[in-house]
Design a protein around this nucleic acid. Structure first.
Lengths: 153, 153
DNA sequence: TTGTTTCCCATCTGATCCCATGTTATCCCA
DNA sequence: TGGGATAACATGGGATCAGATGGGAAACAA
């Protein structure tokens, strides 16, 4: 699971260290790196491991071939996604247009969201975090822990 | 189950011994440690074992992918949660911002709540405990016993 | 060549590991 | 039932290592 929030530096070459925890999550697969695309929903990047994209693909294949949502998904995610492989130190190089889309300026905030993660400009993220927290507080009753599946703790 | 209340010291490095009872609860899983995040509801920390986070994840994954509430929960919980693994003596190191959020100053109160636990600054907790007790007294009729899932307990 | 990208090496900081020690609870036996 | 021995738990400090970051050389493309 991708967890926690980390701020890492983006150098002049567009290189950024992927948090070691995140590298551990995607490790083991055939492709040694992450897959990233610009969010179609805001000024940030979304990403995950190869497994995430494969899950998306199987979701999409269940949709109707000419479903508008399917076409949008295909273009917005698969069309825009780029595989970024790790260098020897666990860094990736972000393409220039990704940096521009997210407004990254020397720093990048990695936000773990369980099965995927997001990359933000730190100040932009701070503003959104406050919203997310108050929204979560107002809606916390929606998060009910039902009966435990297994039974054990 | 996480039970009872314990006060342990937090040293200059942010290390704190997790009560042995609590360690026994999370023991046995793949990840040898606890997962902790700042409450979005107050000046304390929430935590549990890996199993707790997986339950939250399955709850969240039942929501629509781009539901606002889902994204808010993901950022407020997964984005804030950090896995803290035990050292050889059963301690974890709390990140600096967690210590600040809970206002911990040399001491931390672990409060067991069944499937999860909370970490408070001892004096802050004392003040809230009185409130919680009177609240429970006022609302005791809301505590209904449903049918037992497994059978015996 | 010229600019870009990839790879490699050096360095620094902070987290993790390891060992030593005090303290409390538990057990055993008289 | 009391006292001593023992083990489990909690705590402190120092050493070691992994992660993050910066710069430069080599390979590649235009």
């Amino acid at each position: 699971m991708f967890l926690s929030t980390t701020i890492n530096g983006v150098d002049a070459k567009g290189r950024v260290s992927v948090p070691a925890d995140f590298r551990a999550v995607v490790g083991g697969g055939a492709f040694d790196g992450i897959i990233v695309w610009p969010s179609f929903d805001g000024t940030y990047l979304e990403g995950g491991g190869q497994a995430l994209l494969e899950r998306y693909q199987s979701l999409i294949e269940d949709m109707d071939p000419y479903d508008d949502a399917r076409i949008a998904f295909e273009r917005a995610i698969f069309g825009a996604a780029r595989p970024l492989s790790f260098d020897a130190n666990g860094r990736v190089t972000l393409p220039r247009d990704f940096i521009d889309h997210a407004g990254l300026d020397g720093k990048a905030t990695f936000v773990g969201l369980g099965s995927r993660f997001e990359i933000w400009s730190p100040d932009v993220y701070e503003a959104h975090k406050a919203n997310a927290q108050s929204f979560a507080r107002d809606n916390k009753r929606a998060l009910k822990l039902g009966p435990r599946p297994g039974g054990a703790s």
